[in-house]
Design a protein around this nucleic acid. Structure first.
Lengths: 83, 83
DNA sequence: TTATTATATACCCTTTAGGGTATAAATACA
DNA sequence: TGTATTTATACCCTAAAGGGTATATAATAA
């Protein structure tokens, strides 16, 4: 496993956040402020850091009406997903 | 907000894990070993600690074929969910 | 081009997640 | 009952999450 892969999470979350943020026309700074988290956190989130704390992630997701939950993995994605 | 509520996460995850674990007839110790996390972590997870790290949670969920992902919140649950 | 804004990287620092372990309480089973 | 198993609580400790901030590198506009 390459070193960076250790820090990448399933693309869905990072792209989800980035997409939602753009849709609302927010900068990372805006989002950090609204969510009450640090700017560094938003960056690590959008860059796919795996070890983020759930509560912080949820502070962001809630702004979009979402929250973290268990979702069935699909193996197709596992195979095809680019790291 | 009562003090303990700060540490409770949406019931879905904690009950999901507990239910899946029971279905497989595993003890907390078994699950901790299989997931490669500490026993303490499994306990905090099943007790609803909010600030758990996503990667650790995923190590557990993967055993069940699941992973953390953004899920739309339903307001019904927000209102009715017992803390 | 240059100025402005957004994003990324790097560092210091405090707080805390979580491992390990011992003990206590609860549950199951003879 | 008592005994074994499972789960919960409490403590110490190390590694790292993440806040703040300064700097660097895009990206966009004038």
């Amino acid at each position: 496993m390459k070193k960076e892969e250790k820090f990448k999470l399933s693309n869905s979350l990072r792209t989800f956040i980035k997409k939602k943020r753009k849709e609302l026309g927010l900068t990372q700074v805006d989002l950090a402020d609204k969510a009450g988290v640090g700017l560094r956190f938003i960056r690590e989130l959008e860059q796919g850091k795996r070890s983020l704390q759930m509560d912080k992630v949820n502070q962001v997701l809630i702004l979009f009406g979402y929250e973290l939950g268990p979702a069935p993995m699909n193996r197709e994605k596992l195979i095809n997903e680019k790291s």
